[in-house]
């Protein structure tokens, strides 16, 4: 099967078989920032924005994403992504970094909708992203820091 996706604002022609997942199609076409963890929808390493919605790309059949718009962590608007990425580094929320693309995307999706989330709302928004290194406290601090910095710039 074939389709033309728009990935990170650029047209990308892709070929895949009928049961391939979007995760594999993206990785096979060079978007290796989309990480493969569990393949079961449980870890969030593979999340992307599909037509603007945060989804697990391992839980999306590529054939159901015909002509779709996909945003990976590398395609986020720079001025909105940079404060999140810097906050993750400054808060010490990155260790091995495997979960980080997914965490940054989930944080981006949250702050787009709710620029000043409380701890409970952060926990809920990141409930689909597992991290085996940090213990989550610093990740939550990073999201709070990103929110503060984004709001103080606006």
């Amino acid at each position: 099967m074939k389709t033309k996706l728009t990935v990170n604002n650029k047209p990308v022609s892709v070929q895949f078989s009928p049961t391939d997942r979007l995760l594999d199609v993206l990785r096979n076409n060079g978007f290796s920032e989309v990480k493969e963890g569990c393949r079961d929808g449980e870890c969030g390493a593979c999340v992307v924005l599909l037509n603007g919605k945060l989804v697990n790309s391992c839980q999306v059949l590529a054939a159901s994403a015909m002509d779709a718009t996909v945003t990976t962590v590398k395609g986020l608007e720079k001025d909105k992504a940079a404060p999140i990425q810097e906050a993750f580094v400054d808060a010490g929320a990155v260790q091995c970094g495997f979960c980080t693309p997914g965490m940054v995307l989930a944080t981006y999706a949250l702050l787009q909708e709710n620029p000043a989330p409380d701890t409970r709302q952060i926990q809920q928004a990141l409930d689909g992203n597992l991290c085996r290194c940090t213990g989550y406290v610093k990740i939550i601090e990073a999201v709070q820091l990103a929110a503060e910095r984004t709001n103080s710039h606006e």
Binding site: G41, E42, G44, V55, N56, Q59, V60, A106, G128
Partner: peptide, 9 residues
């Protein structure tokens, strides 16, 4: 139920 990205799907 499930998780944020799954609830979107």
């Amino acid at each position: 139920s499930a998780s944020t990205p799954l609830r979107n799907r």
